[in-house]
Design a binder for these strands. Structure first.
Length: 417
RNA sequence: GGAGGGAUUCCCGAGCGGUCAAAGGGGGCAGACUGUAAAUCUGCUGCAUAUUGCUUCGGAGGUUCGAAUCCUCCUCCCUCCA
């Protein structure tokens, strides 16, 4: 590990954010001597980002914390085309209205980590639709296209892998790296942006931007990539039992978000504390050194800290308390995720199967049946064997609510409305 | 333009007229063991008004008592030749 002079790179380095940079020394010098503007691009394909993007967001966060200016580049323009690598789904083209609402949803999460200009901070959010939508094809080819060598583009891993594997690569996708490179130069022109960050899979694209910047404007641009994140057992970041770990509270509640981090694998705890929390390094070292069951304490700290950054300290502690009551005491906490149901329905009784589906604990009646057969379903902490069970008012014993559980970890309260 | 090969359930991949809701693996979920961990073992993994019915094997037709499997046309992908 290089001994960096600048705060920004030193912090990123000791916390494990850095996979590679285009020019360690020059970049370090730049960050040590002036306030730098850097950016990361995000897709606008969903209404919320998920935990997989958190590492990028944290890099921007540290950038701002160390006195620099982060830019979040929203792919409003590139999303118009749709990422071809998503195959089937990519056929559905997003409408401008979709993209706008997605951008609004995504911005929600960012404002927890970054302080934007309208809130008196330095961070910027820009949309590449602003310049990509008006491009004139022939003009663009002449100005930008002439600087790209197809020979060289073919040598990039992202392209080579596809070709080697005999997978198709559309011309559209081939152009993606050109547009991304162009984004970088455009940000450089508009905002004096000097650095692009991203996952290590973005390396080739970022390098293209650097080259283009030098050729067009003679500017010195830099790349910094983060390691691709998987859990120690090889799983993808940001997936959980019920789907993606969304950052927006209306798509994934604080309690479920907290639970995701609480269930971190042992081997990942220290790594995640460094990446996803802002705790001081010596504190992390102490937590990471815990062994066996004690490591559970570290996991709780991890969950609470990560949740606090996103949803606020109060919500995080509430989630922690709910979890404590539910798991440590085996009680029914009043703050478990809750669904409401018409009181008339409960008066006449509701089938357990359909209730489980409504609570989104399972995805179909058949799924619910299987769960019951396998002993996974509990009503008010009592195992259920009868799939025809009907839930009515007599089951509302927890403060007027019924507690449904699927497995040991997923609980939900059903209340009358 | 010519010659071949291919498209199968979430993914990879078998199947090549009935016994196919479709082998095997991966992933996922649950159970056991634990520490709300990993590893391991076991079960499940299309939908439903559920000893039955319905929808699924790129798309549309056809042959047949019966098609993922055979035929025709179409779409897309790959390889080689031009």
């Amino acid at each position: 590990m290089t001994a960096y002079q600048s705060d920004f790179l030193r912090i990123l380095s000791e916390r494990g954010f850095i996979y590679q940079t285009s020019d360690d020394d020059a970049l370090d010098k730049l960050f040590a001597t002036e306030s730098v503007t850097g950016y990361i691009g995000f897709d606008a394909t969903a209404t919320s980002l998920h935990a997989g993007s958190l590492i990028q967001i944290m890099m921007l966060h540290w950038m701002q914390q160390t006195g620099h200016r982060p830019i979040t580049l929203m792919g409003g323009g590139t999303s118009m085309i749709g990422d071809p690598s998503l195959r089937d789904e990519a056929r559905k083209l997003l409408t401008p209205a979709d993209i706008d609402s997605n951008l609004a949803g995504i911005k929600q999460a960012f404002s927890s980590y970054l302080s934007f200009e309208e809130q008196g901070g330095s961070a910027l959010m820009v949309n590449n639709a602003d310049w990509l939508m008006d491009i004139n094809y022939v003009e663009f080819l002449r100005d930008v296209g002439q600087h790209f060598s197809v020979n060289r583009m073919l040598s990039f891993d992202s392209v080579k892998l596809r070709l080697d594997r005999e997978q198709s690569l559309s011309f559209l996708e081939f152009n993606y790296m050109i547009l991304q490179a162009y984004d970088f130069t455009e940000l450089n022109r508009r905002y004096d942006c000097r650095l692009q960050m991203g996952g290590s899979d973005q390396w080739g694209n970022i390098i293209n931007g650097i080259d283009l910047g030098r050729r067009l404007d003679g500017s010195a641009l830099f790349a910094l990539t983060s390691p691709l994140l998987t859990t120690s057992s090889g799983g993808k970041m940001g997936k959980s039992a019920s789907g993606a770990v969304w950052l927006n509270a209306d798509m994934l509640g604080e309690y479920d978000f907290w639970q995701y981090w609480r269930n971190t694998e042992d081997a990942d705890v220290e790594r995640f504390l460094k990446l996803y929390t802002t705790l001081p390094m010596d504190e992390i070292a102490r937590l990471g050194a815990l062994q066996g069951a004690e490591l559970n304490d570290a996991k709780q700290v991890l969950a609470t800290e990560v949740t606090a950054l996103l949803h606020g300290r109060e919500a995080a502690e509430k989630a922690a308390e709910t979890a404590r009551v539910t798991f440590a005491e085996g009680q029914t906490a009043a703050d478990l995720p809750t669904i409401n149901i018409e009181s008339a329905a409960l008066d006449s009784g509701v089938g357990l199967l359909s209730l489980l589906v409504r609570a989104e604990l399972v995805k179909s009646n058949g799924d619910a049946r299987r769960g019951i057969k396998g002993g996974a379903v509990k009503v008010n902490d009592v195992s259920v064997a009868d799939e025809k069970m009907v839930i009515d008012n007599s089951h509302c014993i927890n403060d007027g609510a019924v507690k449904l559980s699927f497995g040991k970890k997923r609980h939900i309260l059903v209340r009358k409305s």
